[in-house]
Write a protein that binds this DNA or RNA. Structure first.
Lengths: 330, 330
DNA sequence: CTGTTAGCGCTTTCAC
DNA sequence: GTGAAAGCGCTAACAG
């Protein structure tokens, strides 16, 4: 049944109308008499006709493709968001083309180029460090997440990472911790930086000394960073990791060293990836709600694709208390 | 700089040749005199010309799109494979269009329909339960994974799940376990079923009684299944989970019940997702090498897209011993 | 309301 | 070798 798919022309012939009319009824782009509508629909049905998106795109002068640059398909934080966006976009004529940027500016620029070649009509940035400059004059609207962006045709959904990290650190302090380290990362965008700032602020205000080491936002970096933290200060009682993956990596190191969590060291993550709740002990973390984020981003995409402006409702970042943080007495 | 991209015509004019010639040099589709080649290349350079994939596709009568149906973008097992495939495809003219099937036949058929509409030239199935029938007469080559498929234009990379599960169960038995439960799932393809068979075979051969309960391949299903296992047989000493997510879910249940792993109950997973090594305790599991699988699948895709047949080298499934299984004495 | 006529940007015969 | 011309399948004025 590999026979060539029917064209609009065949449908037209079978319905006894012109191709233009078929196009009109299919796209609802103009009024068509009742009977012809029926005839066309019937013919479409009979032939099992589906318009060729390629031809439509060429004729309409648009690609109906939206580009998505994300850090990595395997990211436990971004992949659920991608999933949601894909679903939301399914009901629209737009199709996502997702390419990984791997936290590397070079790769991100390549991805940008690739997407541009494919004439995507809008761009969504998930976990990239692309700056406003590189996105200026792209000629297409850009939506970012995780890094505040601004400029003509550029918007971003930026959550209060600084504030959330500040509160998370205060939470640790309120639990009696005094020696609290933060595992940050040089990768990532402003969100990562802001978490560091929030941490610093809370520590400073409490008159505590900050201890910061750097991972790479992945488990393995968290593992090494944890080793570093312990080398720098064997007395730490709490570690605030910039994201859950980092916390999970740190957790392994502690496990291997036989250091109990949270009895000896408390662990606090960020993101609340699906697996955070399944760690042992379940990870206390700052929740970035994937569902809400994905929907907001998809809405924004739809809005800009129709020439509008996105409207972002603030999405709160709340602490999810589980078992990885314990109260210590002074 | 939102000025319309240059067309082949402008390039031709600037190079003092015909569009046909530009096309020829760009596609190497016919010999062109040295000087004209230079002129064309120069013009392309000057104008920053990139051919429109849409127009090319229409003219060539192909879409250069390959469809991928995967269970879920957020799947910790499939998303790394998707990542690898995407990377491998980047150097080809083909672009992947991935859509989630959510382990639901209905969704999978919808996805199939969607991809067909978009005229994908080949199909890759990752973790679907689509059968050969539904794929027959699609008119395009199909590559599957996780479910043996066969038919005209249909191939699949199928690993020895049965054998691997058989050996994994034997491993547990060799470690002294007698009461070993298996958490399976009604979801998924033959791979899931084969793991169950491998488990049963090993149990039978050892004269042990099988205990099987069902989850849904996700953490939450593993959690509930673990509760069920314990209700059915409070004396189990080992649980072989059909995949790591299930094992991780089971782990949480045990954690909440205060049942130590592996001291009281040993846990064995399947897949070796990236996070398996980071569980507490690190999960002993059967490794399905994502890198090798992704590359093999990408190779196969490239082969069939060029009209060839894929050649699969066997990919071994090996047990990765970590800390979640302990030896028990009789 | 609806058919006719041009394209959209590129490839591919078909002649020269 | 290379240009002219005819599409690929569909949409969008433009006349009726």
């Amino acid at each position: 049944m590999s026979r060539p798919r029917p064209t609009i022309e065949e449908v037209a012939r079978r319905a006894g109308v012109s191709p233009a009319t078929v196009s009109r009824v299919l796209n609802g782009t103009a009024r068509v008499s009742r009977e012809k509508v029926r005839a066309v629909l019937q013919a479409v049905e009979d032939l099992g006709y589906t318009p060729s998106p390629t031809a439509q795109n060429l004729a309409r002068g648009r690609s109906h493709a939206v580009g998505i640059i994300l850090s990595d398909f395997a990211s436990p934080f971004f992949s659920p968001i991608l999933e949601i966006i894909t679903l939301e976009l399914e009901e629209t004529p737009f199709r996502p083309i997702a390419v990984p940027g791997h936290w590397s500016l070079v790769r991100e620029l390549e991805a940008l180029d690739f997407l541009r070649k494919h004439q995507v009509e809008a761009l969504l940035l998930l976990g990239t460090s692309l700056t406003t400059e590189a996105l200026q004059n792209l000629g297409i609207p850009v939506i970012g997440f995780g890094h505040p962006l601004n400029g003509k045709q550029i918007w971003s959904l930026y959550l209060e990472n600084r504030e959330a990290a500040y509160r998370a650190t205060q939470y640790l302090i309120a639990k009696g911790h005094r020696r609290i380290a933060h595992i940050s990362s040089h990768r990532g965008g402003m969100d990562i930086r802001d978490r560091l700032l929030g941490y610093r602020k809370a520590m400073r205000e409490a008159g505590l000394e900050a201890l910061v080491v750097y991972g790479n936002l992945e488990e393995e970096g968290g593992y090494r960073a944890m080793a570093e933290v312990l080398a720098l200060d064997p007395e730490v009682t709490a570690v605030f990791a910039v994201n859950d993956q980092t916390a999970i990596g740190a957790r392994l190191y502690l496990y291997e060293r036989g250091i109990p969590v949270p009895e000896r060291i408390s662990l606090l993550g960020f993101d609340d990836i699906p697996l955070a709740a399944y760690q042992v002990p379940p990870l206390t973390t700052v929740r970035q709600p994937a569902q809400a984020i994905g929907q907001a981003l998809a809405q924004a995409l739809k809005a800009v694709l129709e020439g509008g402006k996105p409207e972002f409702q603030p999405i709160p970042l709340a602490l999810v208390e589980r078992d990885s943080v314990k109260e210590v007495r002074a």
